[in-house]
Nucleic acid binder design. Structure first.
Length: 730
DNA sequence: TAGGGTTTT
């Protein structure tokens, strides 16, 4: 096969005047093909319709002119065995014939690695394929480059935050995170670099993919040569085809093994106990095979692991093999996460992976025979009336349950135990999960859309339009932050703010920071506020962890404390051991180092000076606290009683979160976030002086805007105080 | 005086 003679690429496409889009294309355009398609570059056999069939290709790589490597032949064999390979002509034909095609297929069908390549080989000039996760973009691009026997970063590449392994001209197939493609659209509203865009894992409905879909729908009519493929898991629905005006649906079934779904006969009262019993049942009654079970969070998982390890010790006495119990959640150190991919220890033990939703989408563990699905997950919800985002344990969707079940059929036939009744599955679980865009505040989405040149947000064609209240809240916040004007138009400040990959309040703090002469500190803080909590506090060593934290404390500011932690981390050369001794999460801190570097270079590019009062300056933290207030000006609270504060305007009674280092109950604080857990808490707070509020010269603290109430009285008191100080009487 | 699912720019 590989030695068969190939035909030189004929002029077929030019001859019939058809481009891949089925639209006339001038020869001038056609002649702009990159060198890889020159006849001398020896491409594969043209099957007569413009599709190059590498089955009859030569033993020289058409893209490099080099002989193929041994790895190439090995991978080529595997690739041809993929289900999607059989459908390649069908896929190419459909994409040529239609502007948008929806392609469904399970993980394992090979759609992510193969479809973009089919389209490249069919003659598309620049193909981009989005992924929701960085790690997927990297690993898929690497794989495809290997399969095509080309150097990664040349013909095939990837672009993710902090890492661009692509060539501006030579890269013709690029994998990117969805957020990254959205960023690219900031510079190039029409995404004119690409003639083919693939949105992969669209069923996950990430914020960025949703915005991209809306954007692309806008672009399609003005870019007649653009073709789009929306790829998703098979979830039996026509949501995408409807949204894209009856786009054709192709199904590329994956190589899935059957999964036997077993329901409970009666509703389960205590799912934790039911999970434990189900593991015991499987271990004692069912054949060998690893178990994956889903729980909602770290604490639940660590508890369950303890229980199961205890059980494992007891069964050993009864002559049963041991369990190898492994937790899996994203906050777990990477080395611990890796353990779920290793063989069971001792050999022959039954592996039990106790996981959060990471195992539903991000991490795929092969060799699972049993899935236990209690039907719950934590999910973020946003309440626009209180402006609070919170995590809530809630029932999963039918789609999510299907995804979980599928995890048992990846390498062999499996069983999924659903710890709820079949009736509950049909009547109580909603069909789909709420997409992210309906569950979070929209400040950044609005800013992004404005930056993309979309002015009419009301008529923007979201697949699922967000609630009007949420939209209004976002517009209001952006207005007070100075990003939008009275006409809801982007201000110069807003244009600048949209560039930053940060929450809008953090961005505002950052761009204000040179004015407070503390931009060095502000950049550090911005990075620290953008990563997960750096303080580790294991339940059984809580006191020890608290004692260690004391070393970094600046007693009137959690924000300043975070800066101190970061600076200590840098001083200790990013040392992982130092982190673990000090109960700090080194992964989060390293991430903060990267973010800080990126932000500092952005500030420099924008001509915003990096300055600091110096680490010994007595007013260092005062400046930082004022600067935080400049960004988080809508998030202040005043003291009412004991540990209780009241938020300004909304007048919610909130507690100071117990993790705060601020203990002396200052009259006014600025807070980073409002969390709803076992109570209402404000978390990551700093003391502020009330007169700073009026010095912000913002409408937000204009007393005439306040009805008579606690907020007004608190502000009046503060204003009175200000007057008294001015007259030297206080 | 406590709990944070997952991901991205």
């Amino acid at each position: 096969m590989r030695s068969s003679r190939h035909e030189r690429r004929s002029g077929h496409e030019e001859a019939n005047g058809l481009s891949v889009s089925g639209e006339p294309r001038s020869t001038e355009q056609y002649s702009k093909r990159p060198p890889t398609r020159r006849p001398s570059a020896a491409p594969g056999n043209d099957t007569g319709d413009g599709y190059v069939d590498h089955e009859t290709a030569s033993d020289r790589n058409p893209y490099t002119g080099q002989p193929f490597s041994d790895l190439y032949y090995e991978l080529e064999e595997k690739r041809r065995a993929l289900p999607v390979y059989q459908a390649r002509q069908r896929i190419v034909d459909a994409v040529r014939r239609h502007r948008v095609v929806v392609l469904q297929g399970e993980t394992g069908s090979g759609k992510t690695t193969q479809v973009p390549r089919f389209l490249l080989e069919a003659g598309f000039q620049r193909v981009v394929c989005t992924q929701p996760r960085r790690i997927a973009a990297v690993s898929v691009a690497t794989r495809v480059a290997q399969e095509m026997d080309v150097c990664l970063g040349d013909l095939v590449g990837y672009t993710i935050r902090f890492e661009d392994v692509s060539h501006p001209k030579r890269t013709r197939l690029k994998y990117v995170t969805d957020g990254m493609l959205l960023r690219e659209a900031f510079q190039d509203h029409m995404l004119s670099r690409y003639d083919c865009i693939l949105l992969d894992e669209a069923h996950e409905r990430t914020l960025s993919t949703d915005v991209l879909m809306g954007l692309i729908k806008n672009i399609l009519p003005v870019r007649p040569a653009l073709h789009v493929v929306v790829m998703s898991a098979t979830l039996e629905r026509d949501h995408f085809t409807t949204y894209f005006n009856q786009a054709p649906l192709l199904d590329v079934s994956g190589r899935m093994y059957p999964v036997d779904i077993r329901y409970e006969k009666q509703p389960v009262m205590d799912y934790i106990r039911a999970v434990e019993e189900k593991v015991q049942y499987i271990h004692e009654q069912e054949p060998a095979g690893d178990i994956l079970l889903f729980l909602t969070g770290e604490e639940e998982i660590e508890d369950m692991c303890q229980r199961l390890r205890y059980y494992s010790r007891t069964v050993a006495k009864r002559g049963l093999g041991p369990l190898h119990v492994l937790p899996l959640y994203s906050a777990l150190p990477l080395s611990h996460q890796q353990r779920v991919f290793e063989p069971a220890n001792p050999p022959g033990a039954r592996k039990v992976v106790v996981a959060t939703n990471v195992a539903e989408t991000s991490l795929t563990i092969d060799g699972i025979s049993y899935v236990i699905d209690p039907g719950f997950a934590k999910s973020k919800i946003y309440n626009p009336s209180t402006r609070v985002e919170s995590l809530l344990v809630s029932p999963i969707s039918q789609d999510s349950a299907k995804q979980r079940a599928g995890r048992a059929g990846r390498t062999r036939a499996g069983v999924c135990y659903r710890l709820y009744t079949e009736d509950a599955f049909r009547t109580e679980l909603q069909e789909r999960s709420y997409p992210e865009i309906l569950r979070c505040n929209l400040c950044n989405v609005v800013l992004t859309l404005k930056k993309l040149g979309i002015d009419d947000l009301i008529h923007f064609d979201f697949m699922d339009p967000p609630a009007p209240d949420t939209m209004i809240r976002a517009l209001e916040t952006l207005f007070y932050l100075g990003a939008l004007d009275e006409n809801v138009a982007l201000t110069p400040l807003g244009t600048q703010m949209a560039e930053f990959p940060l929450d809008v309040q953090i961005t505002r703090m950052l761009v204000e920071s040179p004015r407070y002469r503390c931009s060095e500190e502000a950049v550090t803080l911005a990075a620290m506020l953008s990563v997960p909590n750096v303080f580790v506090r294991p339940r059984y060593r809580a006191d020890e962890a608290d004692a260690r934290k004391e070393r970094f404390v600046v007693s009137d500011s959690d924000h300043a404390t975070l800066v101190c932690v970061f600076e200590a981390f840098v001083k200790h050369d990013h040392d992982a051991r130092w982190c673990s001794e000090n109960f700090l999460n080194d992964r989060a801190l390293l991430h903060a180092v990267n973010i800080r570097r990126q932000l500092a270079s952005m500030l420099k590019q924008m001509g915003l000076p990096l300055c600091s009062p110096g680490i010994r300056a007595p007013d260092r933290w005062v400046r930082l606290r004022r600067c935080v207030l400049a960004g988080f000006l809508m998030q202040t609270a005043f003291w009412v009683r004991r540990r209780d504060y009241m938020t300004i305007r909304d007048e919610q009674v909130v507690g100071l979160h117990p993790s705060s280092v601020v203990r002396h109950r200052p009259a006014w604080v600025v807070f980073h976030e409002f969390v709803l857990t076992t109570g209402n808490y404000i978390r990551t707070v700093s003391q502020i002086e009330p007169e700073w509020l009026f010095e912000l010269s913002t409408k937000y603290y204009d007393l005439t805007e306040y009805k008579d109430g606690a907020s007004r009285r608190a502000l009046e008191l503060a204003a009175g105080l200000r007057k008294m100080r001015r007259h030297g009487t206080a």
